[in-house]
Design a protein around this nucleic acid. Structure first.
Lengths: 190, 190
DNA sequence: GGGGCTATTGAATCGAAGTCAATAGCCCGC
DNA sequence: GCGGGCTATTGACTTCGATTCAATAGCCCC
């Protein structure tokens, strides 16, 4: 099998496995066996178990990002107002987490969140996502804005995870909630 | 050394070590050596490395909780209004994270966030903290309220972490931001 | 049809977690 | 003061899983 195909196959497998169980609970042997290859081959594609995990996180992050930013940028080209931009971003975000729930959960809750590389990957995704939604805002490099945005990301992630786990009210209401909070956040330091 | 003292000593050590490096990066041998005891003794106090880590998380969570809820309850006895209660809670929270930054970081970012027991410990702390601040609110068991509160917790945690890392504007402004967002959240589904 | 490249394997190594039988210190009744 | 028995403590042993590596298999190009 071709290099890119195999890498892709292994990364997709990683998303499934690591969404269910933690890093340590899954042995290299199990990964290899499930993938139908030998342990040694895994090391041919990734330098180690940890690196494999990090690659999976990056893979998931890229998926999330590529499926959300496009829609927001399209909306921005139509010069909609701030709240609407947030709403479009949210909607794309929620589309993603509904369609690829395990990927999303892996990204958010996957063990090893303490690992610097993992954190960096997740953080850069967050940053890129929020920047797309806020582009054009006049906050510049105000530290208060930075902190507020981080908080907003936290809100979105936690609320989305909770909603995803229960789904006991319409998605639009979640979007409304987030947009309200987002606008409150934006106005708080303006 | 007495049992409780030793356990306490080991847990405090765990907070320091695990705040700096991840679960896997720290070996049982290193922990034992740093504590000045043998590896075997660690197993006398904790059934395994993982259990030791979980115990440390619980320890940290208890510290956070015990140092915050008391102040909020005291304020509630004086029947202050909702926003003020939030502010008091926040203030106690920020006191804690300033004073015991490594403990807080360990609690939030400590690796193994994916571990069910760790997550349960952290979640119950979050829940207890927020319940104390919102007690008396009329949200009852509305799923929207639950999701909103989760989001708010996410906001507080992420914003606090960011602020703690930079501390480039006054603490009170952070508190103001959070209170505003908190009130916006509360009003969003009322 | 052979040389050389890459994918692939399985056995060997190595390190760290976990186990266990033995020792050391201490409190208690006598 | 002295021996029995309890708990703390140790260090060597075992085990399991990550990582390494030398060898094989398949394929492409000359």
């Amino acid at each position: 099998m071709n290099v890119d195909e195999r890498r892709e196959q292994l990364l997709e497998l990683a998303l499934e496995l690591f969404a269910e169980r933690t890093f340590e609970e899954i042995s290299i042997d199990e990964i290899a066996q499930t993938a139908g290859i030998s342990k040694g081959l895994l090391y041919h594609y990734f330098p180690g178990k940890r690196a494999f995990y990090v690659a999976a996180v990056r893979h998931a992050a890229e998926q999330l990002l590529s499926e959300t930013t496009g829609k927001v940028e399209a909306a921005r080209d139509e010069e909609v107002e701030q709240g609407e931009l947030l709403r479009v971003g949210l909607s794309a975000y929620l589309d993603f987490i509904e369609k690829r729930a395990t990927t999303f959960i892996f990204l958010m809750r996957g063990g090893m969140a303490g690992d610097p590389e993992v954190r960096a990957a997740v953080d850069s995704t967050r940053q890129a996502f929020i920047e797309v939604m806020l582009e054009g805002s006049a906050d510049g490099d105000d530290p208060r804005a930075r902190t507020a945005v981080k908080g907003l990301i936290g809100f979105i992630e936690e609320a989305s995870l909770d909603w995803l786990g229960h789904q006991d009210f319409p998605r639009d209401e979640l979007a409304n909630l987030v947009v309200r909070v987002g606008l409150a956040t934006a106005s708080a330091f303006a």
